[in-house]
Design a protein around this nucleic acid. Structure first.
Length: 133
DNA sequence: GCCAACGTTGGC
DNA sequence: GCCAACGTTGGC
């Protein structure tokens, strides 16, 4: 069981869109590091849905429902299927994440442009605590 | 709107 | 294969 952050601009595809759709194919990732993480994902892995740009906060929890399949025509890219699990009671803002010293090593902070990043179990637990506590 | 970070491209 | 130039992204 692994944990991830998946980032999207809410203007392009938001948590509400995902809830409305009931599930989605997380495609369009065109970065090799991010793609490699998509290929690592297993069914049952959980991921935070992070709204970049206008909102800058994690707003919900998703689950991976199918491992990767090719995305695009050239076979270089990958996508996975996800579904919403539940919204966060309190969205965790980027500002709150940056203010917490325990997130110093959080990949999402260290590689701020990466749209798919990994979360360690202890980091995941703390994120959920902040979201639901 | 600007800037920093960083990935990609193209010339050598 | 290296590196400068350029484009894109995300945060401020």
């Amino acid at each position: 069981m692994a944990y991830w952050v998946l980032r999207s601009e809410p203007d392009a595809y938001s948590w509400d869109d995902l809830v409305r759709d009931g599930a989605t194919e997380w495609n369009g990732v065109r970065n090799y590091t991010a793609r490699n993480f998509l290929k690592e994902m297993a069914v049952g892995d959980e991921a935070l849905f992070y709204h970049s740009n206008t909102e800058k906060a994690a707003v919900g929890i998703m689950a991976v429902t199918r491992t990767w399949q090719p995305d695009g025509d050239d076979g270089k890219w990958a996508s996975v299927a996800v579904k919403p699990v539940r919204p966060l009671a309190h969205p965790v803002t980027l500002a709150a994440i940056k203010a917490e010293p325990k997130f110093a090593e959080l990949m999402m902070l260290k590689q701020s442009r990466l749209s798919v990043s990994k979360v360690e179990p202890d980091e995941w637990a703390l994120l959920l605590k902040m979201a639901e506590g």
